Computed example of a mutant assay.
Amino acid sequence: MRILYFVDTLGLGGIQTILQNYFERIDRDKFEIEVLSLDIPDETGFELWLNEKSIPVHKIPGITLKKIRDFSRYPALIKQFFHEHGDFDILHMHASSKNAQLMFNAAKQNIPIRIIHSHNTHYQTSSQIQKVIGDILKFPMKKYATDLWACSTIAGEWLFGDDNFTIIPNAIDAGKFEYDEQLRNSVRESLNISDIDFVIGNIGRFVNQKNHFRMISVFNDLLKYIPNAKLVLAGTGDLEYKIKQQVIELGIERNVNFLGYRTDNHALYQAFDVYCMPSFYEGLPVALVEAQASGLPIVFSNTITEEINISKKQNIQLSLEKDNKEWVEALIEISNRQINRKINGELIQKSIFNIENAIGLLENKYQELIVRESFR
């Protein structure tokens, strides 16, 4: 069975991390996998990993879909790609409606199974024109897709409306994140964090979606009650400079660690005491699954699906409309708890968010779709 996966970028983000988890476990004797992407400069983390795993990678040359003219060049290049690379049994598209042309060409190429997989609940652009184009393109994209999938209910409803869709979980290698006291001590020492410091962590891109400005504002208020609190932020992004300036203006540089891009996220979770995510929107954030797999309690915004709340007794979900005081109180409450992180992490181990449990679901689904098409 030959499957073509499509992603917007070959940078290493949330969707790419999910695909890594599935690609590590999928039966490569049964499923021949290849990856197609737009041609985004300087975003190669996922591409390097795919090359290491001997998974073929293709790019649509010169196309980023960030310029209007790209949309006029896109159809011919997609047609050329399918002409050169032959037939696929499945197109599994992890992208938004701006890539509807790919779904159309896949239908013309007679690829029998064409899956569009939703991972978000908002457009990531601030351009109203691009949002309007995205809304318009939802209709032809759904028309030419044979199957609609989503990582969560709200992600499916955003892209597919009232149409029926299947939920496929954002699964992780849960064992990799299992709590390790020795690793925790080692990482905290490397970050100059003492045993008595209360550490709030967040791993994610510095973009508007993640709402770092609010997080830092809450943290600044928390320091009045827990002066030995530390905020550890891993990631890079367009807003990184402005966020660092906010920290400087508040005079809390000694309490905030900016780690930049990291590849050892599994180790960083060990060093945290709580994970905070006040995002404006998310599909189903992998970071919150990983954090809970490490046994961490999470404090997260009500804009994030309740489906992520696996360790319910340990977690706190708050409205972004609540003032800083309520967020501070939630963090103080967690700082006073005695938490057994081993037991918390076991909930993820047993759940469908563990790749060991989820991979069978995905493989069976692909096989069911192939059988379905054989009777048409």
Rank of each mutant, 00 (worst) to 15 (best):
G201D: 02
V132C: 11
M277Q: 14
G345S: 07
F258W: 15
K66P: 00
N228Y: 13
Q209C: 05
F160Q: 10
S335T: 12
V286Q: 04
P285K: 04
G13K: 10
Y123C: 07
K210H: 12
I216F: 05
G283T: 10
E43C: 02
S37I: 01
K365R: 15
I115P: 07
A234H: 11
A287V: 14
S37L: 01
V132M: 11
G204Y: 04
D42T: 01
K210N: 07
E52V: 00
H266F: 13
G360W: 02
P285V: 08
I196H: 11
A330R: 04
N364V: 07
F300V: 10
N21K: 07
D238K: 14
T64S: 10
N185K: 15
Q314T: 07
T17K: 15
S127F: 06
N354F: 06
I55G: 00
T303D: 02
T44K: 13
D180S: 15
N170M: 09
K53W: 10
T153R: 03
N364A: 06
N324D: 05
K108C: 12
L12E: 00
N309P: 04
E189V: 11
G345R: 01
V289G: 03
G86V: 05
L65S: 11
P75D: 12
Y281C: 01
V57K: 06
G204F: 05
I60L: 15
F81C: 08
H212L: 12
R254A: 15
S152C: 06
A174R: 02
R28G: 08
M277N: 13
R188T: 09
S152P: 01
D180E: 11
L288R: 03
Y225V: 12
V207D: 09
G86Y: 07
P169N: 13
I348C: 05
N51P: 00
L296D: 03
N364P: 00
I136F: 15
V247W: 14
I167M: 10
F6L: 08
P56A: 05
K30N: 14
V218S: 03
A234R: 09
N324I: 00
T64L: 05
N105P: 00
Q109V: 12
N170P: 09
H212M: 08
N170V: 08
W158C: 10
K242N: 15
Y261R: 15
N344I: 02
Q270R: 09
L183P: 02
K131H: 07
A174F: 08
P56T: 11
E321V: 09
E32D: 15
V218E: 01
L183M: 13
Q16A: 08
G237C: 14
V328T: 04
N202G: 01
E32P: 03
F46L: 10
Q314R: 07
P227G: 07
E290Y: 12
S96A: 13
I172G: 00
E34G: 09
L12W: 02
A293K: 01
L222G: 04
R25L: 14
W158R: 13
T236G: 07
M277F: 06
Q367V: 08
L148Q: 06
F82P: 07
G62S: 07
W149K: 01
I78Q: 00
I304Q: 11
Y261A: 14
F219S: 09
Q130M: 11
